[in-house]
């Protein structure tokens, strides 16, 4: 499974988002220190989920960080996120 597919599977399982966008932005960081060949190191995700309701931005980001802890400790070098609720 590609890193992007893993992110998608884990976020869907963990948050049941109503909208989920995952964009590999590794091309923007090509050649910089720590950026591996072949991309899949820098991602941007936009997540709309009812699970974020009543949570602060910090809490929402922590929820995502926890779900993706393994990836963030491994192949994912940077993760930009936008977290929203359906309402």
């Amino acid at each position: 499974m590609s890193v992007a597919e893993t992110l998608k599977t884990k976020l869907e399982a963990g948050l049941s988002p109503t909208e989920l966008e995952i964009e590999d932005q590794s091309y923007l960081h090509k050649g910089h220190a720590g950026a591996p060949e072949g991309g899949e190191s820098h991602f941007r995700v936009r997540i709309v989920a009812a699970a974020f309701e009543g949570k602060t931005r910090l809490q929402r980001h922590k929820m995502v960080n926890e779900i993706l802890a393994e990836e963030l400790a491994g192949p994912v070098h940077a993760l930009t996120m936008v977290t929203d609720t359906p309402s």
Binding site: R57, L58, H61, T80, M81, V82
Partner: peptide, 12 residues
């Protein structure tokens, strides 16, 4: 107090 990372600061 921990405020956050780049995304949170930028959104604020």
């Amino acid at each position: 107090e921990f405020v956050g990372g780049c995304d949170i600061v930028r959104e604020m």
